[in-house]
């Protein structure tokens, strides 16, 4: 951007050399030209920078909106899956309660059957014991009747009646013994059958209940397996959702930070407009000083001195690169250093 001022390039054509305007005005005008160029360049840079920031903001907003739309779409699927999972969970809950109730009923039935069979078996055993006692008693009565017959024979005629009674008693004892003997195998058979067939029947009932229970548990196992698969799918979906959410959160946070930086940069860029205004005001100020010198300086020597002072003031004040180059090109003197070396913030 710096201009190289050749000696033959003098668009203002002011001479002769004795006139101090001839030696200073072209350089001053070149410096003013540099200032104006700075203003134009800054304007362009500001506009481009501002547009660039706004474009980046727009891109980030669009990206954020797309991410949000995808996230909401994914969230809709998760809602449907969650509703289905809830239905499956309710079905499973009902099936499990049915299984528990059925098992409880089967257990109660089996326990009741065993209890009844045990009670019957006990009664038959007790009955068998009583029959044994009856048999023993009838034998003792038989012996007593024999003894009574012997005693009645010793009594002679007086014992004839008693002998008849003794014989009748022996006959009853024999009958009782006979009935007892016949009953004992029957009771034994009943006891054996209760012991064998009764408990066998209980086992059969248990087997039938167990089979039914097994069938139900098989059905519910299949249902549980299906539910488990859906739950696994649900877990995967939830994991995906959490991952997507985490990614979206991270992306949103990053996008937000970038957006904030862009907005701050855009706001900072807006300040450059004011810098340009001040540069133009400085140009106007320099022109005003030149006009004052032209109007008030009493002679060429004074003009020479004042214009020289003005140039040095500009050189010391304006440190932008282009003015630095122009100043060196015109005067051959080192101007103030370019601004890149200066800090942008300092506490005194």
């Amino acid at each position: 951007m710096g201009r190289v001022l050749a000696a033959e390039h003098d668009p203002y054509e002011i001479s002769p050399a004795s006139n101090p305007w001839a030696s200073h005005l072209p350089a001053l005008l070149d410096l003013l030209d540099g200032l104006a160029r700075n203003a134009v360049n800054d304007t362009n840079a500001t506009s481009l920078g501002f547009l660039n920031h706004l474009r980046q903001i727009e891109d980030r907003v669009l990206a954020a909106n797309q991410g949000t739309a995808a996230f909401l779409e994914r969230l809709g699927d998760i809602d449907k899956l969650a509703a289905g999972q809830e239905q499956e969970r309710q079905m499973l809950d009902r099936a499990l309660h049915e299984a528990i109730d059925f098992g409880a009923r089967v257990r109660a039935d089996i326990l009741a059957s065993h209890h009844a069979l045990r009670s019957i078996s006990g009664a038959i055993e007790q009955m068998n014991g009583e029959l044994v006692r009856i048999g023993r008693i009838s034998k003792e009565i038989g012996i007593l009747s024999v003894n009574a017959s012997i005693e009645s024979a010793r009594a002679g005629d007086a014992g004839l009646g008693f002998s008849v009674i003794a014989q009748s008693i022996r006959g009853l004892a024999n009958d009782t013994q006979s009935i007892t003997e016949r009953l004992r195998p029957l009771v034994h058979k009943m006891h054996s059958e209760v012991q064998a067939n009764g408990f066998e029947a209980g086992r059969s009932a248990l087997d039938a209940s167990g089979s039914k229970l097994a069938d139900q548990l098989t059905d519910q196992g299949a249902l549980l397996s299906e539910v488990a698969q859906k739950m696994a799918g649900m877990s995967t979906s939830y994991a995906d959702l959490i991952d997507v959410k985490r990614q979206r959160n991270a992306a949103s946070r990053k996008a937000g930070e970038q957006l904030e930086d862009e907005i701050r940069s855009a706001l900072a860029s807006a300040q450059t407009g004011d810098i340009i205004r001040q540069q133009i005001e400085l140009i106007i100020d320099v022109i005003g000083q030149m006009r004052a010198i032209a109007q008030t300086a009493p002679d060429n020597t004074t003009v020479d001195v004042q214009l020289g002072a003005l140039m040095e003031s500009i050189a010391n004040s304006y440190v932008m690169k282009i003015q630095h180059d122009v100043h060196q090109g015109v005067t051959g003197m080192a101007a103030a250093q370019p601004s890149e070396d200066l800090p942008r913030f300092e506490l005194f």
């Binding site: 860029s269 942008r344 913030f345």
Partner: peptide, 12 residues
């Protein structure tokens, strides 16, 4: 107390 160069850098 000090100075800031325009345009002001937000971080500064």
């Amino acid at each position: 107390t000090g100075w800031l160069v325009k345009p002001v850098d937000p971080k500064q």
